[in-house]
């Protein structure tokens, strides 16, 4: 049955996945080429100076990409479930309903994890040629909340999509917008380091938000 759940989720995301890979690869390549060009034209010193003195993150044009992918993946996976109330079919399947939702979310999170880890690995490998490992680690640690935003926005999108009432959806969307605002408030490197455990805790809690929405759907909540 788990294989069947994964199979269905794969069918939903099979067009999205190559698109997401292309967009992610394209933007990442562009960001890395830009750094490479800076290096070639201005010399290593200027790049190091930008990172150390001016607190440049160098890959800041990738900032919103994980959130965008999280949003799109959430829509791709959960909007088809809510069209014509197809979630009824899913919840009728002989599988524990909360576990079913967790498996569906798990599929999405696994795909996001692969995409984000691949991007972070590409950045690490390429920047290691140009910068000291401490500086590359600093850049990636600065990017960590962006990835967290991707995961959170994915879970929030599922939460909002599965929610059966528009009034509540609006409330959920406001909460999601508030959290996103918080995560993108500062551009200063490693500002969020101390908040990362709390962000992780929030993501763990947000995993259960769509289950709550599905329960409201089952109870027949309406506007």
């Amino acid at each position: 049955m788990r294989k069947a759940i994964i199979y269905k989720e794969w069918i939903k995301v099979r067009l999205f996945t190559p698109l997401a890979v292309s967009v992610l690869a394209g933007f990442t390549a562009y960001a890395l080429l830009r750094i490479g060009r800076m290096y070639a034209f201005n010399g290593a010193g200027s790049v190091w100076l930008a990172v150390l003195d001016r607190n440049a993150v160098l890959i800041d044009n990738l900032k919103y990409l994980p959130a965008l992918l999280g949003l799109l993946l959430g829509l791709v996976q959960f909007v088809p479930e809510m069209q014509q109330n197809r979630l009824k079919l899913t919840l009728h399947l002989p599988f524990l309903q909360s576990r079913m939702l967790l498996w569906m979310l798990g599929c999405g999170l696994a795909l996001l994890a692969v995409l984000f880890i691949a991007q972070a690995a590409a950045i690490w490998i390429c920047l290691r040629w140009l910068l000291a490992p401490e500086l590359v680690a600093r850049i990636l640690m600065t990017a960590l909340p962006w990835y967290a935003a991707g995961v959170l926005l994915y879970l929030f999108t599922a939460w909002i999509a599965v929610e059966p009432t528009w009034r509540r959806r609006l409330f959920d969307a406001l909460v999601a917008a508030g959290v996103m605002r918080l995560l993108f408030m500062s551009d200063y490197p490693r500002t969020y380091d101390t908040l990362l455990p709390w962000i992780a805790l929030l993501a763990a809690c947000a995993l259960f938000f769509p289950i709550y929405s599905a329960d409201r759907f089952r109870r027949g909540c309406q506007d």
């Binding site: 049955m1 199979y7 088809p80 197809r86 002989p94």
Partner: peptide, 27 residues
Amino acid sequence: IALLIEGHVQYAFMTIEEIERFYARFY
């Protein structure tokens, strides 16, 4: 229990083969 939802709603994003393969594992 087999359930038919109003409007013959099914997973319309699947093909005939895919939907059979999907449901077969549950029953």
